[in-house]
Amino acid sequence: MGVVLAWSAIALPWLGLGVPVLFGVAVWRRSLSAYLAVLVCASGWLAAFGGPLLPASAAPGDLVVVQHNFSDENRDPAGTIATLMAVRPDLIGLEEVTVDLEVPLPHHVVFGTVGLWSRYPISSAAPVDIKPHGLDADWRRGLRAVVRGVVVYVVHLPSVRLDTGWRDDSAAQLGRWLAGERGPVVLMGDLNGTVEDRGLRPITARMSTARGGFAWSFPAAFPVGRIDQVMVRGGEVSGVWTLARTGSDHLPVAARVTVGGAGAPGSAR
């Protein structure tokens, strides 16, 4: 049941394509009741999924943040890094890191298969244990760092295949970490689910992201949903968009992020 709900969260926005079809039927039938049905369907869809149709905020934001599942099968690391750096990011969060990457930002930390690269000094960093219960494999997919007073998480939740049990377990553990934070938090990660996915509520209940812009990131060849997220607490994600395709099966997601606090990254710029 969980996997059905997870995939339906990705598929539901596409139901909006049925509204023009219903409108065509209403025109053909010239029926007032049919027009009313179209209006009800369109209003319901806009209320649930119309946020991404809004233009992204023009606010420049304190930070430019890039999130990308780099892919452990990426055959073009240098080209991928060039694509990520094209937006002059302040923070880059990567998952499926299996090689030493030459990222032209001065500070970085890698734990397991997740890494953070920063324009600003990283004052502390440690792995975050979000390994699902019952998983015996060597599994290190979370880190927590502090960048000029802002807590930054980079995470990679389990994939959704036959069920969502491991993904939901990992999300619940991450939610407990987030609940313990008191200052501003920036979260970057491949969450293997959209923000509408019920299994991610332990995270989405504590974090927010931009309403404007779809920024669908997966699969790269024909994106149908955004499972790569940039989220914040104690601030705002004022815009989100995808970058050009890389050697990964995900598209990179970039965002403008404003965070509170006098010591926040970018506050002195």
Rank of each mutant, 00 (worst) to 15 (best):
Gly2Tyr: 05
Gly2Ala: 08
Ser8Ala: 14
Leu15Lys: 01
Leu17Ile: 11
Gly18Asn: 04
Leu22Val: 05
Phe23Arg: 12
Ala26His: 08
Ala26Val: 06
Leu32Arg: 14
Ser33Thr: 08
Ser33Tyr: 06
Tyr35Trp: 14
Leu36Ala: 14
Val38Glu: 06
Val38Leu: 08
Ala42Asp: 02
Trp45Val: 01
Leu46Pro: 03
Ala47Tyr: 07
Ala48Arg: 08
Ala48Gly: 00
Gly61Ser: 09
Gly61Ala: 08
Val65Met: 02
Pro77Gly: 02
Pro77Ser: 03
Ala78Lys: 13
Gly79Met: 09
Ile81Gly: 00
Ala82Met: 01
Thr83Cys: 00
Leu84Trp: 02
Leu84Asp: 01
Asp90His: 10
Glu96Cys: 09
Thr98Ala: 12
His108Asp: 05
Thr113Gly: 01
Leu116Tyr: 06
Pro121Ile: 11
Ser123His: 10
Pro127Met: 06
Asp129Tyr: 04
Ile130Ala: 04
Ile130Phe: 03
Leu135Phe: 13
Asp136His: 14
Asp138Val: 15
Val146Gln: 15
Val147Cys: 13
Val155His: 03
His156Thr: 08
Pro158Asp: 11
Arg161Leu: 15
Asp163His: 15
Ser170Met: 09
Ala171Ile: 11
Leu174Pro: 03
Leu174Ala: 07
Gly175Cys: 07
Leu178Asp: 03
Leu178Phe: 06
Ala179Tyr: 05
Gly183Phe: 06
Met188Arg: 01
Met188Gln: 07
Leu191His: 06
Asn192Ala: 12
Gly193Val: 08
Val195Met: 12
Val195Thr: 15
Gly199Ile: 06
Leu200Met: 09
Thr204Trp: 14
Thr204Met: 12
Thr204Lys: 02
Ala205Gln: 14
Arg206Met: 10
Arg211Thr: 13
Gly212Arg: 11
Gly212Pro: 12
Gly213Asn: 02
Gly213Cys: 05
Phe218Trp: 15
Phe218Arg: 03
Phe218Pro: 01
Phe222Cys: 11
Phe222Lys: 09
Pro223Gln: 04
Val230Gly: 02
Val232Ala: 13
Glu236Trp: 07
Glu236Arg: 13
Gly239Val: 00
Leu243Met: 10
Ser248His: 10
His250Ile: 09
Leu251Pro: 05
Ala254Ile: 05
Ala255His: 03
Ala255Pro: 04
Arg256Tyr: 05
Arg256Ile: 04
Val257His: 00
Thr258Val: 12
